[in-house]
Design a protein around this nucleic acid. Structure first.
Length: 663
RNA sequence: CGGGAUGUAGCGCAGCCUGGUAGCGCACCUGCUUGGGGUGCAGGUGGUCGGAGGUUCAAAUCCUCUCAUCCCGACCA
C-alpha cells in the first residue's frame, strides 16, 4: 500500500491556486444563490430532527453554505482540516512539559488528547437492507470506535483491503425499528490478525501511534511513541557496535552522480531506486546529486584519501543516517521510501579479516534481534541473486512473521576488493607493495521495528518486549468512589513510581483524570506496555497493587513492599517468554521437504520456512520463485550440511537452504 | 508500465439511477454525570462532494477531460 491520508487541499497546491480569468463555475453558482439564513439564526439540527421525527425536510434552513466563501484562505483551510490547529499544538506541548519527570531522561510520551464516550453502535434504517444477507455485505457499516486520531489512511485502501466482519442479524423492534446492538459487536478497532494480517499490522501501527502517513508516498512520520522504540533499539545497537571496536561518523546525504557510477554492479543495482537532485538555488546543477540509497560510494571515496599505509588499517566506521530508495510498494516500517538505519563501513588488510568482520557483525545482529527484540532469526549467506549490488558475499538474518513470510532484518556484506578498486583505495603494505584493502558494509534499519511488531503483536495491539518498551510499566490509579484522588490515591501511586524508577524501571503514571480506568487499560494494551500496575483505595488499604502482564494477561496481587524486586523479575520473565514463544512458532513453521510436490503444497498452505536441497543453480532458484513465489532466504553457514538433492531439479545439493516467501 | 476499481467532514459511510446546492456514526468542543475493563445524557463546531470544462433556470447527481489513490500483475529487497 502507499502512504496517504493528507487532506487533498494540502496535497496539491495547484488546487487552491487562484484561478485566472472570470469566476469559476462554483463561484458563479454561489453568487446565483441568494444568501441563506445566517448560521447563528439557524435552528439546531438536532431540534429539527426531533421535530420532524427523523431526517429534516430537504428545504430545511440549515445550510452552512451560507458562510461567506471569501474568508476561505488556503492556509486557514489547511489549519482547519486539522493538520496544524494552532491551539492543539500549543496544548500538546504544554501537556508534555507537565508530564515530564525531571529525574528521568525518558521523555514522557503520552501527550494525546482524551477520547470521549463510546456508545454502542446502532444500526440505522438504511443499513438494514445490507444486513439481510452476505451477498451484498461489501460495505457494511464500520463497527466500533473509529481511529483515535485525525490522520489515518484514506478510504481507498480500507475499502479494498478490509474484509469486514459479517454483522450478526439485527434484532428488530416493533415496526421494524432496529434495536441497539449489544456487546458482541462493540468496540473493536483492530482487525483480527487471523482475518487480514496486513490490515491488522496497519491498524496496530496507526492506532498505537507508532507512525502516521505523510504527504509523500512511502515517507512515513515516526511518531513519538514509535520513535522512542527506535531510540531504545538504537541505543543498544550503538553500544554493541562500539563494543566491537567501531566509531561513529557522519557522511553527506548527497552523492555526486559520477561517484555512484564508479562501481558498475553497484550503480546498476541502485539506480532504479535513486532519487536525484538536479536543481539547487534555482539553478540547474552541473552534475546531478543522488540522495544516498546507501553510502558506499561517498565513504569509499573518502577512504581513498585517508588510507595510505597498512598502519591506517583497519578502518572501522559506522554511521546512523537516513537513506532513500524509491519503492513502488511501501508499508510503514517494513518498506519505506526513506528509512533510518545504521551502516558500518570497514577496511581490512586481508580477505580473512574482512570475512571475520562480516560474520562478526552478522552475529551482533543476530544476538541483538534475539536478546533485545525477542525476535528469533535464521542466518547465513545469500544466493548470488539476492546479494547486495557490488558485494562479493552477502550474509543476512531472516525472521519469520506470523503470516508465514520471511523478513530480512539485517545484512552484512563482504565487499571484497570491488569497492577499493572502483574508488581507488590503495596503500603500501608491510612489504612496501601497493595493494588494495578488503572492505565490508553492514546495516540494520527501522524495518526491525516492523518485524518486532509483527512478531509479538496480538489482536489487542502491540506487545513490546520489555527491553525496548518506552514505558515498561504503566501505573493506572483507580479513583475512590468518594473524595479526591489527589489525596487518597495519587500520592501512593507517585510513591510507587519513584520506587520503581529507583530500581531502574521505565515507569509512566497515567494520571489523566479525563479518562476512565477501563479506557486506560485498553489504551495501554494497544500500545503494548509490558506491565500494568493498578492501584486503588482497596489496594492501598491492603498495602498491595495489581500487576497485569500484557502478553499473558496474567494478573497478580503483589505487596507494595516487594515491588522493586518483583517488577524487574516479571519484566525479565516476560522478555524470556516472548523469545521462547517466538522460537516455538518459528520451529513449528519450519518444514523440511524433500520433494517438489511437498514444497509446493506447503508453500501454498502454511508457508513459513522450507528447508530443502538446492543445486546452486540460479535457474532453479528462478523457477522456484516463479512457481511458488518463494526465494532462497539464507544458505546456512554453520551446523550440519545435510547434503541431498535439489528440490527442483534433483541434482546433488551440497547442503540444505532456507526458502520462504519474503517481505 | 499493463489490467481492475474508487474519490462526499479528521475517520468510516449514505445521498447520485430519477438534477432543486449535502446527511449519518465515530472523533472533536462545552456542561453535567460516571470511575476496579473502552461511562451516560444533553448541547455544539467542522464540508470549494478530487480538479477543470460542458449540458441546464439549477449539477455531489448527467457528459467529457484530467489528477490522485487502492487492488492484482511487472519491477525492486
Amino acid at each position: 500500500m502507499a502512504l496517504r491520508g493528507v487532506p487533498r487541499g494540502d496535497r496539491r497546491p495547484d488546487d487552491v491556486r487562484p484561478r485566472e480569468g472570470g469566476p469559476s463555475r462554483r463561484e458563479r453558482r454561489h453568487q446565483a444563490v441568494p444568501p441563506l439564513r445566517p448560521r447563528d439564526g439557524g435552528i439546531p439540527r438536532a431540534a429539527l430532527l426531533r421535530e420532524a421525527g427523523g431526517r429534516p425536510p430537504r428545504d430545511a434552513p440549515l445550510h452552512r453554505a451560507a458562510v461567506p466563501r471569501d474568508d476561505r484562505h488556503p492556509l486557514r483551510r489547511g489549519l482547519r482540516t486539522g493538520h496544524l490547529r494552532p491551539d492543539e499544538g500549543a496544548s500538546r506541548r504544554l501537556h508534555v512539559e507537565h508530564l515530564r519527570d525531571p529525574r528521568s531522561p525518558e521523555p514522557v510520551l503520552h501527550a494525546r488528547r482524551g477520547h470521549g464516550p463510546v456508545p454502542h453502535a446502532e444500526v440505522r434504517p438504511r443499513d438494514r437492507a445490507r444486513l439481510r444477507g452476505p451477498q451484498d455485505g461489501d460495505s457494511q457499516p464500520t463497527v466500533g470506535r473509529p481511529l483515535p486520531d485525525r490522520h489515518l489512511p484514506g478510504r481507498h485502501h480500507r475499502r479494498h483491503r478490509r474484509v469486514r466482519r459479517p454483522l450478526p442479524r439485527v434484532p428488530q423492534g416493533p415496526g421494524g425499528a432496529p434495536l441497539t446492538m449489544e456487546k458482541e459487536r462493540t468496540l473493536k478497532e483492530i482487525t483480527p490478525k487471523s482475518q487480514d494480517f496486513s490490515q491488522w499490522y496497519l491498524d496496530v501501527v496507526l492506532k498505537a501511534e507508532m507512525a502516521d502517513y505523510g504527504p509523500v508516498k512511502g515517507c512515513m512520520i515516526i511518531r513519538p511513541y514509535g520513535y522512542a522504540v527506535w531510540e531504545n533499539m538504537q541505543a543498544d545497537m550503538d553500544r554493541r557496535i562500539k563494543e566491537t571496536g567501531h566509531v561513529n561518523a557522519y557522511f553527506p546525504l548527497f552523492i555526486p552522480k559520477s561517484y555512484l557510477e564508479k562501481e558498475k554492479e553497484h550503480v546498476e543495482g541502485f539506480s532504479p531506486e535513486c532519487a536525484w537532485v538536479t536543481v539547487g538555488g534555482g539553478e540547474e546543477l552541473e552534475e546531478p546529486l543522488a540522495v544516498r540509497p546507501t553510502s558506499e560510494a561517498i565513504i569509499c571515496s573518502m577512504y581513498a584519501k585517508w588510507v595510505k599505509s597498512w598502519r591506517d588499517l583497519p578502518i572501522l566506521i559506522n554511521q546512523w543516517a537516513n537513506v532513500v530508495r524509491w519503492e513502488k510498494v511501501t508499508r510503514p516500517f517494513l518498506r519505506t521510501t526513506e528509512f533510518l538505519w545504521q551502516e558500518g563501513h570497514t577496511l581490512h588488510e586481508t580477505e580473512a579479516q574482512a570475512e571475520e568482520e562480516t560474520l562478526k557483525m552478522l552475529h551482533v545482529y543476530r544476538s541483538f534481534s534475539e536478546e533485545i527484540l525477542a525476535m528469533p532469526v535464521v542466518w547465513g549467506r545469500k544466493s548470488d541473486t539476492e546479494k547486495f549490488a557490488g558485494a562479493l558475499r552477502t550474509y543476512a538474518i531472516e525472521a519469520l512473521m506470523s503470516d508465514g513470510k520471511a523478513l530480512q532484518a539485517g545484512t552484512s556484506h563482504n565487499l571484497g576488493q570491488h569497492f577499493a578498486t572502483a574508488y581507488g583505495i590503495e596503500y603500501l603494505d608491510r612489504n612496501q607493495q601497493r595493494v588494495k584493502p578488503w572492505s565490508t558494509s553492514w546495516g540494520t534499519s527501522t524495518r526491525m521495528v516492523g518485524g518486532m511488531i509483527m512478531t509479538h503483536g496480538d489482536d489487542s495491539g502491540l506487545v513490546l518486549p520489555p527491553r525496548i518498551a518506552p514505558h515498561q510499566v504503566v501505573i493506572v490509579p483507580i479513583p475512590p468512589r468518594k473524595g479526591d484522588w489527589n489525596e487518597q490515591v495519587l500520592p501512593k501511586a507517585r510513591e510507587v513510581a519513584a520506587v520503581l524508577r529507583a530500581a531502574g524501571v521505565r515507569v509512566h503514571l497515567d494520571d489523566r483524570d479525563t479518562q476512565q480506568p477501563g479506557f486506560k487499560y485498553a489504551d495501554w494494551e494497544m500500545r503494548g506496555v509490558p506491565l500494568r500496575l493498578e492501584i486503588g483505595p482497596k489496594d492501598i488499604e491492603k498495602d498491595q497493587c495489581v500487576l497485569v502482564r500484557r502478553d499473558s494477561r496474567e494478573k497478580a496481587f503483589v505487596p507494595l513492599a516487594g515491588l522493586a524486586v518483583e517488577v524487574p523479575q516479571r519484566l525479565g520473565a516476560m522478555q524470556r517468554q516472548l523469545l521462547e514463544r517466538a522460537r516455538k512458532f518459528m520451529a513449528d513453521d519450519t518444514t523440511r521437504v524433500t520433494t517438489y510436490d511437498q514444497f509446493e503444497q506447503v508453500m501454498e498452505a502454511k508457508r513459513g520456512f522450507l528447508v530443502a536441497g538446492w543445486c546452486g543453480d540460479a535457474a532453479c532458484e528462478a523457477k522456484v520463485k516463479e512457481e511458488t513465489k518463494a526465494t532462497i532466504r539464507v544458505i546456512p553457514t554453520e551446523g550440519e550440511a545435510a547434503a541431498g538433492a535439489c528440490v527442483r531439479c534433483g541434482k546433488p545439493s551440497p547442503r540444505e537452504v532456507y526458502f520462504a516467501q519474503a517481505y
